[in-house]
Design a protein around this nucleic acid. Structure first.
Lengths: 236, 236
DNA sequence: GGTAATATGCGTATGCCGCACGCAATAGGA
DNA sequence: TCCTATTGCGTGCGGCATACGCATATTACC
């Protein structure tokens, strides 16, 4: 029993207290420093470039030293996600639910603009961190007084959040040719134009000129989503 | 130069012809058989259980034999995705755009219900396969005659598609306690209730009883989204 | 039928990866 | 001063994707 290696697990690391035990040598690193370095690495070179060895090298320490601070790579990515999400926006509700939800959605999408790798992480099941719950709190609070019931409030926030996640790839793809990797040229190349007439027609028309702001997928979608929510609120 | 190993790359595998060269021994496997086995494995045990060695074992062949059919694992997953997506729904447009888009959205979400791992694959940039473009074609065709311009047609389809992707995690999570891993019990455990009052309140109210159909996140969101699109179409 | 050309199946090897284990060094408490 | 908890981290293991090249099977051509 040379090593007990009792580490805070899962939720504890995200939510628990960080008081270090009194005995033993002083740690040369700190958990936030490690997580921030990992975020920086993922920002610069993507999630697939993030390995424990690479991260340790970046920090100038031995690979296994990281495991004194983090029980597993999975835990590390959970911490990275909550760090990337960052502090939720402070939405004064006085301007009404619609503009509140709009700024909430924009704050939401900004996370994925700044940290594209975060999209792959929110997709898998995980424990939510304080920042993520903070976002949820801000979103729900913005809907207070709309007359929506609890279930509808939650569903509304999930809707906007889901929409943001769904359009995040297109947001990140700014500059590529339309909906990810479908190009009219490719269809032409394989002689599939008559199999997908509408696609060809629409893609050709869209490719012609660069879109106005309201024609950017995210902007267009956000308006429709908020309109749909408004219709629900007004019918109460 | 013992081996030229000229393989069709990327789009060729998804879109190209599959005529095998005349010389040499007969292949013991076929590309579709491999892809289907991979899909079955991912369905049963998840994407993380899918390794080339495991897949080869499942098929009773050597690991490296797979590379005679597929240039890389990435290519294999692209093929898996298009197979999982399957044939797009045949939507007769006669019932109007709204019910057409609704059935389109449901067909869309069914893909993720049947193949939860597909969500992780659509998220990354990739070449769209014939089935995926077929879905796009069906969605766009459903919007013909609504008066929407090409950009708005495309954006509408992207909106619904994005919404489906965004809510797919919640669909898959059926049975877990609400929005993924946030539970009132956890907040209570760490004494964070007063930091997130609205979250606690709403979660408690929602947890009380099981939701009616219109209160399921996907159903709720779909209505709002379609309402928002309807508002846009009517204003033309 | 013989031979050359071309595929195929796949064993072997390489270089990554996450991480279990345990030891030597460190530093507070007694 | 000695004890004990804690740290940094070297070493090793099993698994991963996949490059390389050999033996073998099948066909084309003469």
């Amino acid at each position: 029993m040379t090593d007990r290696r009792v580490q805070p697990s899962g939720a504890q690391l995200l939510w628990g207290d960080r008081n270090r035990p009194p005995r033993g040598p002083k740690p040369t690193m700190s958990l936030p420093r490690i997580v921030e370095a990992a975020v920086r690495l993922a920002d610069a070179e993507g999630l697939e470039a993030l390995s424990m060895q690479r991260l340790a090298g970046e920090l100038g320490v031995g690979t296994m030293s990281l495991y004194r601070y983090v029980p597993s790579k999975d835990e590390l990515t959970s911490l990275m996600l909550d760090t990337a999400i960052g502090a939720p926006p402070d939405i004064g509700k006085r301007t009404g639910w619609r503009s509140a939800m709009e700024t909430w959605a924009r704050a939401n999408v900004r996370v994925f603009e700044r940290h594209p790798w975060a999209l792959a992480l929110v997709t898998r099941p995980r424990v939510m961190g304080p920042n993520e719950v903070g976002f949820l709190e801000a979103g729900l609070a913005a809907l207070r007084g709309t007359g929506l019931g609890p279930a509808d409030m939650l569903n509304t926030v999930l809707l906007v959040n889901g929409f943001v996640r769904g359009s995040a790839p297109f947001v990140a793809d700014r500059g590529s040719d339309g909906p990810q990797m479908i190009s009219a040229t490719m269809l032409a190349e394989f002689g599939q134009q008559e199999a997908f007439p509408t696609v060809c027609e629409v893609m050709a028309a869209v490719a012609q000129r660069r879109p106005r702001k309201a024609e950017v997928p995210f902007e267009y979608g956000l308006r429709r989503v908020l309109d749909g929510i408004a219709a629900r609120i007004e019918q109460l």
